[in-house]
Design a protein around this nucleic acid. Structure first.
Lengths: 152, 152
DNA sequence: TCCAAAAACGCAACTAATTTGCGTTTTAAT
DNA sequence: ATTAAAACGCAAATTAGTTGCGTTTTTGGA
């Protein structure tokens, strides 16, 4: 279950509890950042976040918060068309400090360049081949997202 | 069939013919760059190329040659651990100007960070789901490559 | 509630990677 | 041989991300 589902279900979300449970400080910015992630089904670029908070927050603070969130298993890096840093929320239970397990695929839209997590599609498990030791596989899909598909 | 296979088969390769057939000029540097790609089974970083050619060539020239090679369907971008530009040769017949078709997977080594093309593994075709229009899928494998596997 | 330690923050400066502008040289095509 | 197009080199600019350090906020125990 993803964090944003809690939100969708109109449960009273305790962002602060989540931060504490992951060992992260409850500063105003970090609470707002977590809320932003929870309210967005799209992955977020560093720049999306900087734009959202405007001059309220320094970009260095954004980079450091994202680094901490990622290290503590709250968010994960997703592929980006232009190789920039881009993140989505992790699954609620599956990730923790130093342990990221992602059993979903990523979809990149050719039009808006956004990356989405696709929970329904599980990447195939590939057995080891010709001397390579394969530890993990990930599937990246490309095309037109729901929004761009319908407005074009 | 990949270009480097021609090489392996000890056929007399006409790099110049290949460049011409793709609509690229046959300058000394571009011939040498194509030869470098043909002789390498690993993908190449911009920096690998800059180091290889030393002070013989300007980095801007490298970036521009790679851009042209990619646009003309001679090489393709492969994923890189640190989000840097990294390229491999395309399949001989399948790619051309504005049309890249890649039916192989990519393997990233956790130790040496190199990316390899894995011809044997074809990414699954995913049917369209929930409003998304999926045009392409790519599979990224991670683990230890042959070389790192055997020396550790 | 008070206090010290740890974590987060802001600012400025820095680094790495890539891009742009422009004048010069090389290549292609006739 | 001529000329247009493409490639090249250099310098400067841009973009994305990082580092150092002094200040502020948060945390956790007395």
């Amino acid at each position: 279950m993803r964090f944003w589902m809690l939100n969708n279900m109109r449960e009273k979300i305790q962002y602060e509890v989540i931060l504490t449970s992951k060992g992260l400080s409850k500063t105003k910015f970090r609470i707002d950042l977590l809320r932003l992630f929870c309210n967005s089904k799209k992955s977020l670029l560093v720049d999306d976040i900087i734009v959202f908070f405007g001059n309220m927050i320094n970009k260095v603070t954004v980079y450091r918060a994202l680094e901490d969130f990622e290290n503590k298993g709250l968010i994960h890096k997703v592929p980006d068309k232009k190789n920039r840093k881009r993140f989505s929320l992790c699954d609620f239970d599956e990730c923790s400090q130093n342990s990221h397990i992602h059993n979903h695929s990523h979809f990149i839209c050719d039009i808006c360049n956004t990356t989405f997590c696709i929970d329904d599609i599980i990447p195939p498990t590939i057995s080891n081949i010709k001397g390579y030791h394969i530890k993990q596989s990930s599937l990246i899909l490309e095309g037109y997202c729901e929004e761009c598909n319908s407005t074009n």
